[in-house]
Nucleic acid binder design. Sequence first.
DNA 1: GTCTATATTCCGATAGAC
DNA 2: GTCTATCGGAATATAGAC
Lengths: 196, 196
Amino acid sequence: MASRSTRSTQILEAAARVIARRGVRGLRVEELAAEAGVSTALIYYHFKDRTGVLRQTFEFINDRAARYTAVRDPEAPPPTPREELEEVLLLELQDDGEVRENSVAWGELRASAVFEEALREDLARATLVWVQDVAALLGRVQPLAPASSLAAAAERLTALLEGLSMRWLSGGIRADHARELIRGAVDAELAGLRQD
Amino acid sequence: MASRSTRSTQILEAAARVIARRGVRGLRVEELAAEAGVSTALIYYHFKDRTGVLRQTFEFINDRAARYTAVRDPEAPPPTPREELEEVLLLELQDDGEVRENSVAWGELRASAVFEEALREDLARATLVWVQDVAALLGRVQPLAPASSLAAAAERLTALLEGLSMRWLSGGIRADHARELIRGAVDAELAGLRQD
DNA sequence: GTCTATATTCCGATAGAC
DNA sequence: GTCTATCGGAATATAGAC
């Protein structure tokens, strides 16, 4: 079921590209219209206002990101927990267009939430789910580790990923270097869990 | 040599407060003028334009942050390298007014650099200095560790700190929890360096 | 150096035709 | 559903007096 390319989704795809280029707070409705190849009026017809565009774009991006995780070759042997863990963490540090767009949008959401209360609840919920996923994967690699240690390690790994992602997106380091650092952190955290 | 409170520095202090409240992209010259208790025209007199204000505010904040690190009771015994290391890392996660302002500004700088080439060079330089400082401290705790391992650990610790700082500032976690997680990461990294 | 206007630009949003 | 044209407000920036 490939998502039909309706006008609305065309605009949302364009919005993701513009946000990746200019940031949430740099998104101009006029530029979005140009990127999508439509008039500004049409944007206000499909979305109530600029805020509506942003809200729906984040939804759109979230859905898209959720789909990536599912992509797997059914022929290949099932991944080990350890592989799954690294996969989940390394997936976001890819120079691929859509993945990068998602990472930029996530960073923008995080940065905007510092100043906008309204964004915090959604962000907190999404973060919690993510941290719990990672904690569960860690638990499958180190089943004897106490839950509190797993939770702390998951918080650190995901926060580290966000920090490295920002450095990557802001031009401080390359994606492959960031991935290498993540792998090192996974090693270190698993070593720590082995001792608990 | 306490920095005299010139008009310019008054405005820069006000700018730091406004940025902490509204973000870089939410800073309005008019609001800044009100906060500083001057007219908008005066701001354009002292700083060429809005961008000039932002550039100088980041410089100002950097200088201010550099001063914190130096604050130490001359009576107390000198800190161990390990203590110094934790101090440097934990310093930024404080609910204190100016420290918080600095953290917010740093996060904004990082986030803005994703979209503005012009900011990247300064940011990269400041980050490099910081990472090297931390690597040097790690080296004093684990003198036998190879330089490349020290560098990687320093990159991870500082990136983790940035990630946790954003979570703290965006309301996801409390400062003391963030500090706890940092301490755990320091433990883990030092354990890793011990084996190299 | 500092202020009180005011000019200028930019951008979100709408009216109304097709 | 989509466009052209335009309005109105907000924010940056400047002119000119003191």
